[in-house]
Design a protein around this nucleic acid. Structure first.
Length: 593
RNA sequence: GCCUUGGUAGCUCAGUUGGAUAGAGCAACGGUUUUCUAAACCGUGGGUCAGGGGUUCGAAUCCCUUCCAGGGUACCA
């Protein structure tokens, strides 16, 4: 039984004995003692006052005396207003460290027997990835790793939006103005090449609209009547009809895009267990619509369109099938959800999708629930905020986007420049240097994006480079490297280190307490689908270590063997926590930097 | 209009499910290196937690309301 449980149980017993009252366990409110007071664990006694019928101070004193008398580890207490601060024996913390934290399985969770699917990335194949996609990819990857770490069996999937009018726009523009250009001939990455034609389409389309407006059409009419859009729509119909030339072009251009994405994904360090393609799934869902009609969940309007009425749930009426029998977005998603469940029978499923689709997913999940799908309750939308620039929203068609590949390259360059300026790794060979620059640059980028709570919008200023100091990825990486250097110089070997029964300092005690929280941090980050929780925790750990490192005399020269061994063990565990935690964020920590 | 999410230091963000005097980083200023990596450490200044009201021993946190910003709003995805 850990000390927190002992304190809770003893407090309940104390209230029984002292006041003859039954105190519910959840009324025992524990928190870390603030640094300015003596002690490590604090009981907030206000909730107990109702039972003691005494002042907060008197109640706290009663409890303090009882706990010191009845719990061996509680050595002293002090009362500040309604707060009872308890001092826990150093021996307890040393023992906790030696038995729990030094155990190789510390913070490792055994399988919980549950399977979860994480769908993320889900790009369109008409343009390259930008910073918004980067946030999605890093979030999805990290949440998947987080769930793995907390015991889930995880399936990562990518639902690629590879069809539709927007794809046809790129295709059409290439056909008209491409002159047979290919990634090879242009030396452009395939996704960028296709994106270029998407932009060209938009430009030409806008010209046509302007021309039609000069002829007296309204904006709306012009948008509908422009020859280009009509051609694109025709192309989409041809695609659906399976016209060979269109299919051929589609395959070719999508192939270029996939080659490009593969490079971007590799740079971002993300991967998938399975890809779904909308070209295979866009017709799904009609069976589900029939099912809904049979069950009376959906209804048909006179024109033949199919709807669901969600007004009783505070939402609107929602179209699920057009009058002409064709699908809308939600039709596909209903069908795809069913297919994914049939494929994997997962207990939970997480959709990593921007908050612009909050309403869509609310509706989707509600419909599946109403259809009586037992698995519907396991569906979650991990909604994240948009990445904005100081100028506002990023818009692909207007070219105000931060390109993912460019950004990665810039980050690596910056890492290189900063590392070279410090001159600590001049003995590395080229390959080691490249790897280090990559790890540091990506560490900075990933941490920057992941430390922010997913649901909050994120501001990125291209003019201001991402920091490498303070609350950043490189700071944590540096702390890890620093520890590794120390351990190396000390000739430390965990396998033969053994435990040490040593006196500990106040900072060491704080570190043990902080490190001991690691398993809880993993669980709560996983539960809330928030890598930010973990990121901020790892920063605390790194900061604490640097404080410890700085205020402690050189450990290698420490003459008291037990103290030395303990400090090296403490450093080792810190490095392990940083390494494993960062790994979950998708960030590698170097041995040297 | 309606629904929804945000608003915390000059800037970027935390805030442990309602607890003590609201914390970090960056930027600014000052200090620390003959000692294990200074991408570090220590210190100073900086706050109407958007405004107002309420709930209670106690509110950045819960409720109501106003303002500001983002997103959505029935046949785009």
């Amino acid at each position: 039984m850990n000390i927190e449980h002992k304190i809770i149980a003893a407090t309940v017993a104390a209230v029984k004995e002292l006041y003859q009252q039954d105190l519910p366990e959840n009324q025992v409110n524990l928190q870390d003692t603030r640094a300015e007071f003596e002690g490590q664990i604090t009981i907030v006694v206000f909730p107990v006052v109702r039972f003691s019928k005494k002042s907060p101070e008197a109640t706290a004193t009663d409890l303090g005396e009882y706990l010191v008398a009845n719990i061996e580890e509680v050595t002293a207490f002090n009362v500040v207003k309604g707060f009872l601060n308890l001092s826990i024996a150093d021996a307890y913390w040393v023992n906790l460290f030696n038995t729990d934290l030094l155990n190789p399985s510390f913070g490792v969770f055994s399988p919980n027997g549950k399977k979860v699917m994480v769908e993320y990335s889900s790009p369109n194949t008409n343009k390259p990835l930008h910073l918004g996609h980067v946030r999605n990819n890093l979030l999805g990857y990290s949440v998947a790793e987080l769930l793995k770490a907390s015991g889930y069996d995880v399936v990562k999937v990518n639902l690629v939006n590879d069809r539709g009018i927007h794809i046809c726009k790129s295709m059409l523009a290439w056909q008209k103005w491409g002159n047979g250009e290919t990634p090879e001939s242009s030396l452009m990455k395939g996704d960028h090449l296709v994106g270029k034609y998407y932009v060209i389409f938009d430009k030409e389309y806008k010209k046509e609209i302007e021309a039609l407006k000069l002829e007296g059409q309204t904006e709306e009419e012009a948008k509908k009547n422009a020859p280009l859009i009509k051609e694109a729509q025709k192309m989409l119909q041809d695609w659906e009809a399976g016209v060979p030339e269109v299919i051929e072009l589609w395959k070719t251009m999508n192939g270029w895009v996939y080659d490009g994405f593969a490079v971007s994904y590799k740079n971002l360090g993300v991967d998938f267990d399975k890809y779904y393609y909308e070209s295979n799934t866009y017709l799904l869902g009609k069976g589900t619509v029939d099912e809904g009609l049979e069950k009376g969940v959906f209804f048909k309007k006179p024109d033949g369109s199919v709807w669901i009425d969600l007004t009783a749930d505070g939402l609107d009426q929602k179209l699920v099938l057009r009058a002409d029998g064709t699908s809308v977005y939600i039709t596909q998603d209903l069908g795809t959800a069913q297919m994914k469940y049939d494929d994997f029978k997962m207990d939970e499923s997480i959709y990593v999708v921007g908050n612009e689709q909050d309403y869509h997913f609310k509706v989707l999940f509600l419909i599946l629930e109403k259809l009586g799908k037992s698995w519907a309750t396991g569906l979650h939308h991990l909604s994240y905020g948009m990445v904005d620039l100081p100028s506002g929203k990023m818009k692909s068609r207007e070219g105000t986007v931060v390109d993912a590949d460019d950004l990665v390259a810039e980050m690596i360059d910056t890492a290189k420049a900063k590392t070279e300026a410090l001159g600590k790794v001049n003995d590395f060979d080229e390959e080691e240097k490249e790897r280090l620059y990559y790890n540091i640059g990506m560490g900075a980028l990933k941490y920057f994006l992941l430390k922010v709570e997913p649901k909050k919008r994120l501001l990125f200023d291209p003019a201001e480079s991402i920091d490498f100091q303070g609350n950043t990825g490189p700071f944590i990486q540096y702390t890890h490297a620093r520890i590794k250097s120390l351990l190396l110089k000390a000739g430390y070997d965990f396998a033969h280190a053994g435990v040490a029964d040593a006196e500990i300092t106040a900072t060491e005690k704080e570190m043990i307490m902080l490190l001991a929280k690691y398993p809880n941090e993993i669980q709560s980050a996983a539960k809330t689908h928030s890598p930010a929780v973990l990121a901020n925790y790892l920063y605390e750990v790194a900061k604490m270590f640097n404080k410890f490192y700085h205020e402690t005399p050189p450990i290698i020269k420490e003459e008291n063997e037990a103290v030395k061994k303990h400090r090296l063990n403490l450093s080792f565990v810190t490095a392990e926590v940083l390494k494993r935690g960062m790994r979950i964020l998708g960030i590698a920590v170097p041995e040297r930097m």
